[in-house]
Design a protein around this nucleic acid. Structure first.
Lengths: 344, 344
DNA sequence: TTGTAGGCGTTATCAG
DNA sequence: CTGATAACGCCTACAA
């Protein structure tokens, strides 16, 4: 009920009370160089006293610049994503921007609808991690080509050449796989997500490269795809493998959740980890230190990726010239723990 | 750079092209009853074709109603909070609202600053979970008394009588403690957060009530306070207790994190869980099922609390009459698991 | 150093 | 059923 709200204080009110023009107030409030010191202090003093708060809506409308950054992610309540958002939000606030978030819930339709809504809010820039379902990017190209910078993070498009903040998935997966090989594994299984998501495709490439570099045969039966890579899925996939005629002696899971499922499965079946089955995950979620045995993993710098994405967004939005560095790659690190370390 | 942006399509453009007045277009777009069927379809058709998107800023300015809900929480990247936000966001979107988030990082100063910024954005309502540091509520009272509904969730103020969505902390804590007693515990320790946060105070009350109801002495040495209740803190507190002359035979931790720390500590010291030390946490985070032994806990319906908070926010914001139901309480449930179940 | 005036895009009011 | 007009609060040429 707008009529229940107290009337807000405007620069007009301050102006009349001080017997100056509204424009003077406006300028004084932002320390415009042409305004007298005395006026500035007087205006600010009164503003404080009257509880004046600049109306960002009006200001944004006038300048055609909102100070709001849109964030569009699959799910907010996942460790990696919530840390990513944490990074975006913290960096945004430091630069004086607000963050407006929405989740696609991994649905393409939601993603399209939310992208439109965010666009209507005249966001300054958009940070996106794609829904699992998404394979075309028209809704995002539209935003981008209208002049609003779009920065992709983690789940980036395969065909669209947009700005992106990523890790080297191929190298990271190669590292993880090589680590298992170094620990003596010869039959290594891979748990991956839907291949049309490029990150999973790349991680598979790294896995294959490592095997080939060590003259190990790639057995397609050991490459398992899951749409969600939940703990339960990981458990199920592991069971399937361990009960097969030729069980693997190592598993590389492209996320930690599914790896934890595998550990639990091994425990249930009485398979010794890491002696009979070495396991490594991906993301280095807190859960790695909680599960027994502790889970080896590869770091995935979520907070940092969020910060970088925001900075890149501002860089692109405020640049005079097109920004040529369209891809920002962050470092990852192997974190070996007991789930894969065999005493030698 | 606004000048890099393509000029946006306005109702004006549509109006000229269709030879009608802008006001007609505006009304047609929202199916105003007084506009002819033919005009409506024509307008909508052209709008679609030209890629028209209503400018929410202008609309909000004019109507003095933004369709944005503010969310102010300590940290986004915590399981309970990110699920809470998930709930708020999902419900908001279903009702046609956007969500703008900011985190206080548990600092009072941040909380005050962010509250001001959100207020400047002319949010429709504000959902808040307090920073650990916060003990005065002027910054929020100001918003509330200006007519913007403020809804507190979980970490609610002790002295301010605002709208709130909570659980029955006393009862929940009583349940948890009684459960340990039922399992044969006689010396039960309590891990709690800063007492000026009412939720911890209430949980302590529940704990005391349960002990007294069973004629067990309350030993103040067993009540340990920690500012953050992290896993490491839990580990440290548990060690302190277990190495004391009279170690406890049960621990009730007011969050799961610290309880996990206690389990790890017990494992490190060779104390059997639950036989020598029964442990129960609070929140029922995913980690409960991952730790070994699985951690007993009390559910804390994060997503549901988020949804309810949003609904209450809209109810209050759009009510003709003051909303009298200022407190919404959700159910919790005891979830016994191996960390506290002693075979009998 | 300050004031004037017009407009950002939308909607509410009042006429027709 | 539709149109003209004025405002929402702020910013920015341009004028003084």
């Amino acid at each position: 009920m707008s009529n229940k709200r107290k009337k807000q204080v405007t620069i007009y009110d301050l102006a009349t009370e001080l017997n100056v023009a509204p424009s003077t107030v406006s300028r004084a409030l932002k320390d415009h160089y042409s305004i007298g010191k005395a006026t500035i202090t007087a205006v600010k003093e009164l503003a404080r006293k009257r509880g004046y708060r600049t109306n960002i809506l009006a200001s944004s409308l006038r300048t055609r610049e909102s100070n709001t950054i849109g964030v569009l992610v699959p799910w907010i309540n996942r460790p990696f994503i919530s840390s990513l958002i944490h990074g975006v939000e913290a960096a945004a606030r430091e630069s004086g921007y607000n963050v407006i978030i929405s989740q696609s819930q991994d649905s393409y339709d939601h993603e399209v609808a939310n992208a439109k809504t965010l666009f209507s809010s005249r966001i300054h820039a958009l940070v996106v991690s794609l829904a699992m379902q998404t394979t075309d990017y028209e809704h995002l190209e539209e935003i981008s080509s209208s002049g609003t910078p779009v920065i992709f993070v983690d789940r980036v498009p395969s065909t669209l050449d947009g700005h992106r903040v990523v890790i080297d998935n191929v190298r990271s997966a190669r590292l993880a796989t090589q680590h298992l090989i170094d620990q003596g594994c010869r039959r290594i299984a891979l748990f991956k997500g839907a291949s049309h998501q490029i990150i999973y495709h790349e991680r598979e490439c790294g896995y294959r490269e490592a095997l080939q570099a060590n003259d190990l045969r790639v057995d397609d039966e050991l490459i398992l795809t899951s749409d969600h890579l939940t703990l339960e899925e990981g458990n199920r996939l592991a069971r399937q493998l361990l009960q097969s005629p030729h069980p693997p002696d190592g598993i590389f899971s492209t996320n930690d959740n599914a790896a934890v499922g595998a550990i639990k499965c091994a425990r249930e079946l009485g398979v010794a980890v890491p002696e009979q089955l070495a396991i490594i995950g991906f993301n280095n979620d807190p859960v790695c230190e909680i599960i027994d045995p502790p889970l080896s993993s590869v770091t995935h710098p979520a907070v940092e990726m969020g910060r970088m994405a925001l900075q890149q967004a501002l860089r692109v939005a405020n640049a005079k010239m097109p920004v040529t560095e369209r891809r920002i790659e962050l470092e990852t690190q192997l974190v070996p723990r007991a789930s894969s370390l065999r005493r030698r």
